[in-house]
Computed example of a mutant assay.
Amino acid sequence: MEESLNEKIIGSDFPQVYKFIKGYDEDAPDALFSLYKYKDTFPDYIPNLDGVMLAGYAKLTDFVSNGFSPFLLIMNEKAKDILGQFHLCPHKFYSLGLYRRKIKNDYFLFHYHSNYSDFVDYQKTSFREHHSFRFQSDPFFVSSKEEFWEKRKAIKTEKGISCGIRGDRIVMNKDFDHELDFFVISILDANTYVSERLKNAIETAGLTGWEFTPATNLIVED
């Protein structure tokens, strides 16, 4: 899944949301940014997400792109209800006020945690060096998750913080949850994956803001 860049759908501002309305205290202990410290858990409070501002040349869609975090997704109630029918990685939904020209629209923040790197078959997965958002080497293999991290650290030390390694052809082992409908693997792969059944439900409902391409790089072992 990728967030739509189609200006006919989302308007000419991307991301569609990247700042707050006047008067919102972004430094408050329950503000949106407070969620950043919850990388593997969820807060024991309800964050105050009223409100964020739609960019001036953006349009309202069912799924709304934002510049806050890839693990914080904004969607309306229709989109939330459809996702709620499927098997998702650990997540919470929070009410969010999305303002367009001072008019409040009721949306939701989808806060999720997703790290399935322990279910990658590292010996069968091919990797490539990744510099400035592009692959920059021929595929190679590592023997384990530990070797992946060692090689990643070495490349960053040698070539800079913007460099690393990413999965090229990723193989998930037989213990991976085959029934997941929405997940991210981890830092070794930047993609967000949805099942075909969830994709079909989103498209059948005519929801806007997300686009889909076949995950030909991902193999899930039986």
Rank of each mutant, 00 (worst) to 15 (best):
T41D: 11
T41H: 04
D44K: 14
Y45L: 09
P47A: 13
L49Y: 03
D50M: 08
G56R: 14
Y57H: 14
Y57S: 00
F63V: 01
G67K: 05
L72R: 02
L73V: 10
L73R: 06
I74K: 01
I74W: 01
I74Y: 01
M75T: 01
N76Q: 11
E77T: 11
A79H: 08
D81F: 12
I82D: 02
F86V: 02
H87Q: 14
C89W: 14
K92W: 04
F93I: 08
F93V: 00
G97Q: 08
L98P: 05
L98S: 04
R101M: 10
I103Y: 13
K104W: 09
N105V: 09
Y107W: 13
F108M: 12
F108E: 06
Y112A: 06
H113V: 00
S114P: 05
Y116C: 15
S117M: 12
D121H: 13
Y122M: 02
Y122A: 03
Y122W: 03
K124Y: 08
H131E: 12
H131A: 09
S132R: 12
R134G: 13
R134E: 14
Q136E: 12
Q136A: 13
S137Y: 01
D138F: 15
P139G: 09
V142S: 01
S144V: 03
K145N: 13
W149E: 15
W149T: 15
